[in-house]
Design a protein around this nucleic acid. Structure first.
Lengths: 121, 121
DNA sequence: TATGGTAGTTACTAAACCGTAAGTATATGC
DNA sequence: GCATATACTTACGGTTTAGTAACTACCATA
């Protein structure tokens, strides 16, 4: 879904970095654009497309769909369709997604500290 | 240095996200492109421009400079110039930068786990 | 028959990012 | 006088990402 040309230098660089550094691989899964916000909201108990759209105001439907799909194929969330009318689709964190939570919290705390440090200057 | 047009929607979205989420703010400081790799190498004792260039092979000089500058203005590293010939410049982690280290390690561990999870499918 | 609600998809365009290659300054060694 | 070394800077153009707006499908209700 990230529409890369497979022979571009950027593509090759990214491959190389992700291959020999699990940390960069981790960031490629959860560190992109709206993904942190989505994961955050999910830990707060938000599970449906429409709810997320309202909870993360400036996100567009396109971006929300795209990121949810990627999180799904990367094994961080699951997607369950309930064949009702109007349709209902629910997203839930997998064990892998859940195991990220404590790290998210720590980075959050670090971010607060960094913000203060920066503000002082 | 991230050359944003201040009236673009992307710019406004990013501002909004960083303002109300310290986590996304944190990612904006250390989660971009080559920054993790740079920070990683610095914790391993690499302090000079040329060393980093060699330690992170596919990085270009332009990107290395750009990221070092951003890390500096964000308070994660310091830059010290020694007026010698040929010139010598040394980079070091600040306390804020150092305090990131345990989190980097955890994300690294998580990345390894995620990689295995993905490989199984 | 028209409206509303869910959960999307698609085409188009604007913005941001990244890599390449060339150039800067200074001094030492050959 | 030319190459080498360090640590950059700049212009340019291609690549990638993000946002907008319009559109889809299904059924229930008024």
């Amino acid at each position: 879904m990230p529409q890369r040309k497979e022979n571009s230098v950027s593509f090759e660089n990214e491959q190389a970095l992700e291959t020999d550094c699990p940390f960069i691989f981790a960031l490629s899964l959860m560190g992109k654009r709206w993904k942190p916000a989505i994961l955050w909201k999910m830990t707060e108990g938000i599970h449906r497309f429409g709810e997320m759209k309202r909870a993360i105001p400036p996100i567009s439907e396109k971006m929300l769909t795209q990121h949810l799909r990627e999180l799904e194929t990367d094994g961080l969330i699951t997607r369950t369709i309930y064949p009702e009318m109007p349709p209902r689709v629910e997203y839930a964190l997998t064990n892998l997604g859940l195991s990220l939570q404590p790290i998210l919290e720590q980075l959050n705390t670090w971010g607060e500290k960094a913000k203060k440090t920066k503000a002082k200057k």
